[in-house]
Structures are given as C-alpha cells and as structure tokens.
C-alpha cells in the first residue's frame, strides 16, 4: 500500500501537527520505508485468529459509579499555559 503525500497531510491534520511542504516530503519518504517494513504482516496467515488487544486477555474492570475524587482544579491548573478565573484560555472559538 503505497503512501502518498495526501495521506501524510491527512494524518497530520487529524493529528493536529503543523507540517510544512518540505517536512511533508520527508515524512512521505520515512513513513513509506516504515510501512514497507510493516507490510510484511500481509504475508502471515491469520485466518480464524482473533485480534489480541491485551496480553493477558483481561477485560475492563468495573467499579461502582460513585464520586471518589476531590476537586483539585487549582492544583491541576497550575501547570496550564493560560488560565483565568478557573477557566482555560484559548483563542476565540465562537464569534
């Protein structure tokens, strides 16, 4: 499955990473080599094999739906780049 420039630009947009034209061509080259290596997987017969998501086949543990955490907003916002009155500041989204 050949990787095209448009694939890299789409992935970069979905991943929210700014990529210049020069960088995009570098990524096409590097990612193509990686995907060529990955394509060896297509040679494995996996008919009837179930996908493995967790090495111990464990399932998600559940707990009672109860509030157990205390509010630590001030502590958690101390490492934020910009906050005001307990709110995270971002550029205007709605005009």
């Amino acid at each position: 499955m050949a990787l095209e420039d448009s694939h890299v630009r789409r992935a970069a947009h979905l991943a929210r990473i700014a990529v210049s034209d020069d960088q995009a061509s570098g990524f096409v080259e590097d990612l193509s080599r990686i995907l060529d290596m990955v394509d060896q997987l297509q040679g494995v017969d996996t008919d009837g094999v179930a996908p493995l998501a967790h090495p111990l086949d464990a399932t998600q543990r559940l707990r009672a739906d109860e509030v157990t955490e205390t509010n630590q907003r001030d502590t958690f916002q101390r490492c934020a780049p910009a906050v005001e009155n307990g709110l995270y500041l971002v550029p205007r989204v709605v005009e």
Binding site: V38, V49, A50
Partner: peptide, 12 residues
C-alpha cells in the same frame, strides 16, 4: 489492513 491484522499477528 494494519491494526486488526497486527493484533491478530500479536496473538500468534
């Protein structure tokens, strides 16, 4: 083609 396939190979 990629992710599901890789997870199957992971089981093998």
């Amino acid at each position: 083609a990629y992710y599901t396939k890789a997870q199957k190979v992971r089981r093998l």
